[in-house]
Amino acid sequence: MYAVRAGLQKFKITPKFEIESIIRLYARWIREGRLKVSSDWNRELGVTFTVQDPCQLVRKTYGDPVAEDLRFVVKSVVGEEHFIEMYPNKSNNYCCGGGGGYLQSGYTEERRAYGDRKLRQIVETGADYCIAPCHNCHSQIHDLSEHSGKHFPVVHLWTLICLSMGCLGENERSYLGEDLASVGL
């Protein structure tokens, strides 16, 4: 998203459309009652989650309002009491090291050293899961989790939204841990 938005600015292009992020739409659709999510599935289970604020979406594009939308969605889906913040967060969040082309740059050792700060931040929350609503963040944090031997699951937001609506199919669970592998099936 940032590459297009910044590109429009840089190359002085005025498009005939608007740019939108699905994260903002998730929040709007839940508020409007069109997306009937619930955290009931997690009441007994008590699985805890933290969330990565993607730099491109938050600090570099919409700022704290979209970080609030993100939290609203996450809390609606997993339950407010099961959400744990990392600090610092929102616009002041640390980059995970998945951006800037790092994943393809060949500097793997440096990328993991960079990500160490993020890894520690996540581990310190004590959360069972990390939600990464950005592809580069997802790849990077998943790699940090596996490579460090911490093995905490890293999930996309759409997985949890469908899980919370009881409509997550059997083949759509590759990133869930064993604890949630059969919830709602």
Partner: peptide, 24 residues
């Protein structure tokens, strides 16, 4: 970068879509 942005912009405009929606 510009080539790619222009290709994407044209694709959305050619279909007359109101929003370019990103999955993140």
């Amino acid at each position: 970068w510009e080539t790619i942005v222009r290709n994407k912009v044209k694709a959305v405009e050619d279909l007359g879509c109101r929003y370019w929606l990103n999955t993140e």
